[in-house]
Design a protein around this nucleic acid. Structure first.
Lengths: 330, 330
DNA sequence: ATGAAAGCGCTAACAG
DNA sequence: CTGTTAGCGCTTTCAT
């Protein structure tokens, strides 16, 4: 390759990286040779000395459409840059998360974006010590990694306020059951439940606080709705902690022969693309996944440029998306 | 590292790869040192000599849930193996596909799985010449790469037969518009349209063949339905070429105040997870995405082991999934 | 401004 | 069975 251009390998390396010390003449020679030979530098060899121009994105679940919005933001921000995004999916427990982060570190990626990880804080800390890292969806204050979050506490309040404003009093919530003490304070699901409790208090509805503890899945929503409907005084509105949960709730209500919002109102959280699909038209909280993605990416690039910089915690403000699954109570 | 274990670097390398020529004694020493130091081999350095233990999966769109089923199959088959899956998403045109395949080759991945690529055959051929490749969702006969497909021609016939069996005669189809001649014969969407035409002929419904040419998206479905409803003799059943298209159709029908399946029947193709969601309950064709994934993965591993082996074309048989969006015509 | 040379962390061929 | 040695394709001093 260098021989074909009639210059040294050093020259080629310099030109390709726009490094200091190259003449226009050299530039031309190298470019010509690159085009002719269709030369591509080996990322593997580069990795041994410098950058890989690769950022890794860890995704818990491809099926959750909310994450797709985040990915769009990441991709858009990196579009046109030299960086390539490589992702992994299907990490739903600490063990597989550890495996995946290790794998990304082994492949000397330049930076990592971890979306809604469930690992213990200590593990996130360890990862961030090794490679520039940005965490999405964990309300932790680390000195080593930046975080981008939606204000889940406020977001939950938005839904309670909306339902209370419609005249609902028996507003129930379906939360994701979390057992681990260390993680508890950091997880969005916990903050949503807290925000729900706090808002109920503020609206003078403390007596009607009612939480079903299942999981953030469609099945969890279905199950949660069944639990709530079996209460002595069933709720007139259900605030599901996530849109996928709300889908399960809607299913269970249809099964029980209840109309929405006639008999009972339903809200979700996330504003996944499907929530806006007309036959569903779910009232929910918009998390601006796209902006979460672009913000996280910018932070990552900053951190790659200056690994020791002080960590920042970005908290974005959610907005309500009112649609057709909520209305005044009977 | 080797010093800490009191052996040579070769020894370490051999033990870690379970290569020939290691004593149990050596094994123990190395293992102990690895555990103590938390040593991890650098994939980058490995790549320079041997394998990276990485397979790349190119995904056109994270939002299409059918692809998630394929990914599940891939992940399951590779679970427990040394391989790590890294994916890219958001390739919806030939240019970005080329960028992504290049990126994966640059990073010396051991093998590639390309899902529903739109690149020209020549490009696929070029990729496959460089790295072991399996292509999903392209009915091409290449000597260099293996393919895994669903029998789209037969699948389309399944839906026509189902609708005709219910008594429908004016059965319309919404296809994905394809212009490129070279690609045309290879694309699943084209085969579904062909299968539709052929089945209509077989059922003596040639006179009722009616195709709206839009795209495999929800908007495409919505638009296609509008076109078909404006016909002088609107269809009594719409066979959408993909489930996402059917979702758009259902939306347009609800908008037009038509009931399903009372006024009009709708079917999709793919059997995405959402199709089984009760409030939707879409009649569709099950492609067994999971099996497509495991099959493709096995073929890739075989091809990595023996790059020159003759290419195989696997064609899986689709099955109908009859749900609530189809019924007898008025 | 340019190129020679060392070395990143591994693997493979070979000698002991 | 074990260790020495020579690269893999780059980047990075450091002479020239």
């Amino acid at each position: 390759m260098a021989r074909h251009a009639g210059v040294s390998t050093t020259a080629v390396s310099k030109v390709l990286r726009n490094a200091y010390g190259t003449s226009p003449q050299m530039h031309r020679l190298v470019r010509a040779a690159v085009d002719q030979l269709g030369y591509r530098p080996s990322a593997a060899a580069r990795a041994l000395r410098g950058r890989t121009w690769t950022v890794g994105v860890m995704l818990p679940d491809v099926r959750n459409p909310f994450f797709a919005d985040i990915l769009d933001g990441v991709a858009e921000h990196l579009d046109g840059s030299e960086y390539q995004v490589l992702m992994t999916s299907g990490c739903n427990d600490a063990a597989s998360e550890a495996r995946v982060t290790e794998a990304m570190i082994d492949r000397s990626m330049d930076g990592l974006i971890l979306i809604a990880p469930v690992s213990l804080p200590a593990h996130l800390e360890r990862v961030a010590r090794t490679v520039p890292t940005v965490v999405i969806g964990r309300h932790s204050r680390s000195a080593r990694y930046d975080t981008v979050n939606d204000d889940d506490f406020t977001g939950a309040g938005l839904m309670v306020a909306h339902l209370a404003g419609l005249g609902h009093r028996r507003i129930a919530h379906i939360e994701h059951h979390e057992t681990d003490r260390v993680r508890l304070a950091e997880m969005p699901n916990a903050l949503r439940a807290d925000g729900y409790r706090h808002a109920m208090l503020e609206h003078g509805l403390a007596a009607h606080i009612d939480i079903a503890s299942t999981s953030y899945t469609r099945d969890g929503g279905h199950h949660g709705a069944r639990i709530l409907l079996d209460r002595e005084h069933p709720p007139t509105a259900i605030f599901a902690g996530a849109d996928v949960v709300a889908l399960g709730v809607l299913d269970a209500l249809a099964e029980a022969g209840l109309s929405v919002p006639g008999d009972i109102s339903v809200t979700g959280y996330d504003n996944i693309a499907l929530a806006g699909y007309r036959p569903i038209s779910l009232t929910t909280v918009d998390q601006a996944g796209h902006r979460i993605g672009t913000t996280a990416t910018q932070l990552l690039l900053d951190r790659i440029a200056e690994p020791g910089r002080p960590a920042v915690q970005v908290k974005l403000t959610p907005t309500p998306a009112v649609r057709a699954t909520t209305g005044p109570p009977r």
